[in-house]
């Protein structure tokens, strides 16, 4: 039963969706503060390569090495995000162009591959990799075993993050403040909320989560480093935030849906089911579905209630005093 295609697809949907989920949650935090960061792909790649490097370099027990690797990946993502934050928050550069610049700088043909080559990380499996957290007996339970209980610790951390970010945004004072900063920065500023500090903080945390998302790929999903290994996941994560109407719970649903779509082709190949001429469609599915979802999300009638933060993409300029 646990080998049926449906169960396997859902289980690998969770596994493939976890990098997307981390990155989307990070982007969600940045966007909620009013900063659009299109550099997710680049931040993920730098997180992926630095996490992999840390995993290789520290000669410590597995658990500690992996924990260190995640911390390094988060820091690397945050440093990348800091460049974007400085440009768009302090220097008021165009957020779209700056985000694209970040992807070019850090992306598949930039810093991540520079580091991968310079540190000679290609063509070898990860020294330590994340494996299932819970005992074998639990993993073998029907259906819930592979889907819920057979996952690695990063999956469980991402669940905690979904709940935590949801509560943070709706039930805490900093959460209220960050939403105000993203919706109406001048109103927030009038009430003494430091718009700049909130935007920096959330953009940086967003970058850190994107970095962790990247490391999830190189240390758990496919434990190796290949230049450009994210293959557009960062962009799908950006689209996911729109699809999820800027809500963490819906991010989880969307991430697992797209994770499952990404898993379809490799899973069918693993079962030597020949795709024939449909290979093009199966491979294109995640991208085409994302386009479709964007269209549906954009033309929905609930946009006013659920739409983008009011000040998303705009620099906040306090009037001269």
């Amino acid at each position: 039963m646990n080998n049926s295609l449906a169960v396997v697809l859902i289980a690998s949907g969770v596994a493939y969706g976890t990098p997307l989920l981390f990155a989307a949650l990070g982007e969600l935090l940045a966007e909620r503060s009013g900063v659009l960061n299109l550099g997710v792909e680049g931040m993920m790649l730098v997180g992926a390569v630095m996490g992999f490097w840390a995993d290789e370099s520290f000669h410590v027990p597995t658990g500690i090495a992996l924990a260190l690797a995640i911390v390094v990946a988060a820091l690397a993502g945050a440093v990348m995000a800091a460049v974007h934050a400085f440009l768009v928050i302090t220097l008021r550069a165009n957020q779209i162009v700056s985000g694209l610049a970040l992807t070019i700088f850090a992306g598949a043909a930039g810093l991540s591959s520079y580091l991968g080559n310079d540190l000679q990380l290609s063509d070898k499996p990860a020294r330590h990799a994340f494996g299932p957290l819970l005992p074998k007996a639990l993993q073998n339970l029907p259906v819930v075993g592979p889907i819920l209980l057979g996952q690695n610790i990063l999956v469980y951390i991402s669940w905690i993050l979904v709940v935590g970010i949801g509560l943070y945004l709706t039930r805490t004072r900093p959460g209220l403040n960050v939403r105000a900063v993203g919706e109406a920065p001048s109103a927030a500023d009038t009430m003494g909320i430091n718009v700049t500090a909130y935007r920096y903080a959330h953009t940086l945390v967003g970058g850190a989560l994107a970095g962790v998302g990247g490391a999830t790929i190189t240390l758990a999903l496919t434990p190796q480093w290949v230049s450009g290994i994210t293959g557009g996941s960062g962009w799908i994560a950006v689209a996911l935030v729109i699809f999820a109407f800027w809500r963490p719970g819906l991010c989880l649903v969307g991430a697992y849906f797209f994770g499952a779509l990404q898993a379809v082709a490799p899973e069918l190949q693993a079962r030597s089911i020949s795709l024939g001429p449909t290979v093009l469609w199966t491979n294109s599915l995640p991208y085409l579905m994302t386009v479709l979802v964007l269209v549906v999300a954009a033309s929905g009638t609930a946009r006013r209630r659920l739409g983008a933060p009011g000040a998303l993409g705009t620099a906040y300029v306090r009037e001269a005093r």
Partner: peptide
Amino acid sequence: PAGLVGVVQG
């Protein structure tokens, strides 16, 4: 190393 050009461009 490859990627250097991308870094400079960025």
